[in-house]
């Protein structure tokens, strides 16, 4: 149970920590929005867990998968809103950005954190595993905090060197990974058909191991992704990059013409 709790922490809590760290560094000053987002996320998670049995019955038993997929999609499209606001830097509405970032954190807390809460809810009342779960929780929390600190320092360095687009890119890579990884949720409830596996690197870095979990969180690493996932991943990653790069080039040339 101890190791299992640590692994569950890495899988379910680390994505929340990573997103918080990236957005904390990405958004300018006034960090009160973060506290509000975490509280909202905790309340929403509580509501979700309470209603999860009902949600699971929605759409002929596809409710949870659809909810999780929609959540990941909203997080992904929120990243595009952040980039759009960044591209029109002359009139950025900070309050709006904080709402968008808050939504991203709250939804991630609900979709990822709820799994961990379900696990705790199911097993904490068993006295024989209580100690293992508590130690595992502390260990997992320690690992997540250490990794989050390292990532925060890395994001800070990148922002100082290349500006806010660097931290946006980190958020975008993270959100794209989560978005592409949500695709199997639709396949497993038969909403879309699956395609062949593109490759298998299970022997190299398995998703079962620590590095597999870490890379999965950072950039959506899958040891055996399907071709659909690869297509969605590449399109979701590079289309916005191309669009916003083109916009930046345009705005720079406009400024040059004005001068």
């Amino acid at each position: 149970m101890l190791i299992n709790t640590v692994i569950l922490f890495l899988r379910d809590a680390l994505p929340i920590f990573v997103l918080i760290v990236y957005l904390y560094e990405h958004l300018p000053a006034n960090k009160l929005w973060l506290l509000k987002s975490v509280i909202a996320g905790a309340l929403l998670s509580f509501l979700y867990i309470n209603q999860i049995n009902i949600i699971s019955q929605w759409f002929d038993g596809k409710g949870i998968e659809l909810f999780l997929w929609v959540s990941q999609s909203i997080v992904y499209f929120s990243t595009l809103i952040l980039a759009y606001e960044l591209s029109r830097n002359h009139s950025t509405n900070r309050l709006f950005l904080h709402w968008v970032a808050g939504l991203m954190i709250s939804l991630t807390m609900v979709s990822k954190g709820s799994n961990f809460v379900l696990y705790l809810d199911g097993y904490l009342n068993q006295s024989n595993v209580l100690q293992s779960i508590l130690i595992g929780t502390f260990l997992g929390l320690g690992i997540c905090l250490s990794l989050a600190t390292l990532l925060y320092l890395a994001a800070q360095w990148l922002k100082q060197r290349w500006g806010p687009w660097a931290t946006w890119l980190l958020v975008h890579i993270y959100a794209t990974g989560q978005f592409a990884n949500a695709l199997p949720l639709l396949i497993q409830v038969d909403l879309i058909d699956t395609s062949d596996t593109a490759w298998s690197s299970q022997y190299l870095i398995s998703n079962e191991y620590e590095f597999g979990h870490l890379f999965n969180v950072l950039f959506g690493y899958q040891a055996s992704p399907s071709i659909d996932q690869i297509i969605v991943y590449l399109l979701a990653l590079f289309t916005p990059l191309a669009v916003f790069y083109w916009l930046e080039l345009n705005s720079t040339s406009h400024l040059g013409n004005k001068q």
Partner: peptide
Amino acid sequence: TPEEFDSFSLNREK
């Protein structure tokens, strides 16, 4: 108690 069906090779979790 709840359980999560998980498979990395099948790419499934529920």
